[in-house]
């Protein structure tokens, strides 16, 4: 604990060099963007990279273009800047809110929108190291959280080996809008939906995403949607600010007359990965958004929830969060 193992450092200036360096560095080489997760976990001794490739000096990673049909957001753009992009603020308030409600302004100034997608869990048993068993940190060691203090842990997507909550906000909002990520590796570029980026823990909670170690997220793209304007990111937490979500919901609606034509619902703070609630979305189609339909959608979103010892409240809280977010989004659809 409370250590940073020695590592070597490189700061390339092009994406190509960065990808090449990952292979040069060999196993244990990691990309470091803002460093707000990785360096933090290195100080805790949870992450122990032998070498670090600092992505902070690659201008092409930070290009943002929100003027076209789709939003194109460079992975190296800073969270605080993207949070105030006028197009996001006006046309995708859920995206902007998911960023501005995350962390603190200092952390948002350091952290990048690409790195934030891969933010790691806040599970105290994961972070604190010894003596706690943690399959994510030390595969096969067990999960201290399952029989422990699991108040902030997940109720969706959990497995017997891990119940750690995905802590981020931005990826939740992106998931609601079917965002894509472009990644580049030694073999060139490929694209995958944000929906395919994160993994449920299953038996291998140490593997949190589907990227290869030598693949780098270079940009995020949000395709056109009719659900962007009437959207919101509602985050419920223990403090009025600067805290992780106990439950959050990214919601977008397309309302025609009184009835919903298209609905997007994604959940944060309650699941082991950014969680899309498709059945809840479908329950709203061709229905008006009322307190009742919103509450019903919320309940559907948590139909498969599996409570632990102290986190059962998240099922009711999460359902109400979804319901409230739907009502906020519906109001925005008539403005």
């Amino acid at each position: 604990m409370l250590t940073t193992r020695p590592f070597t450092y490189a700061a390339p200036t092009t994406i190509a060099d960065a990808v090449a360096l990952i292979d040069t560095g060999g196993p244990g080489t990691k990309f470091l963007a803002g460093g707000t997760t990785l360096y933090d976990l290195m100080k805790l001794g949870v992450e122990t990279p032998a070498a670090v490739v600092d992505l902070g000096r690659i201008p092409e990673l930070a290009i943002v273009d929100t003027t076209g049909d789709q939003l194109v957001i460079g992975a190296g753009a800073r969270m605080c800047d993207v949070a105030e992009d006028p197009v996001l603020l006006h046309d995708y308030p859920a995206l902007a809110e998911s960023l501005s409600l995350a962390a603190s302004q200092q952390l948002r100034t350091m952290a990048t929108v690409g790195g934030n997608l891969l933010q790691r869990t806040r599970c105290a048993y994961f972070r604190a190291g010894a003596p706690f068993a943690c399959n994510k940190r030390d595969p096969g060691s067990g999960c201290a959280a399952r029989e422990g203090i699991d108040r902030v842990h997940a109720v969706l997507g959990v497995s017997d080996s891990c119940i750690a909550t995905y802590a981020g906000d931005w990826a939740v909002a992106l998931l609601a809008f079917d965002a894509l990520v472009d990644v580049v590796g030694p073999g060139g570029e490929r694209t995958l939906p944000v929906a395919d980026l994160h993994r449920e823990p299953g038996d291998t909670p140490q593997i949190e995403h589907t990227l290869a170690p030598n693949e780098l997220i270079v940009r995020i793209r949000v395709p056109p949607t009719d659900t962007g304007r009437a959207s919101t990111y509602l985050k419920i937490r223990d403090r009025e600010s600067y805290a992780f979500a106990l439950a959050s919901a990214a919601v977008g609606l397309a309302v025609d007359g009184d009835v919903v034509r298209n609905a997007r619902i994604a959940l944060g703070g309650v699941a082991t990965r950014p969680w899309r609630a498709r059945a809840a979305e479908e329950s709203l189609i061709d229905a008006p958004v009322t307190a009742d339909t919103a509450r019903r959608a919320g309940r559907i979103a948590f139909a498969d929830a599996r409570p632990g010892r102290h986190n059962g409240y998240k099922i009711e809280l999460g359902a109400r969060t979804v319901a409230n977010a739907l009502l906020i989004a519906a109001q925005r659809s008539v403005r």
Partner: peptide, 14 residues
């Protein structure tokens, strides 16, 4: 711009 110096590798300020 404001940052947290504890989570900033000194090398990043080069």
């Amino acid at each position: 711009r404001r940052v947290l110096s504890c989570l900033t590798l000194a090398a990043k300020a080069n």
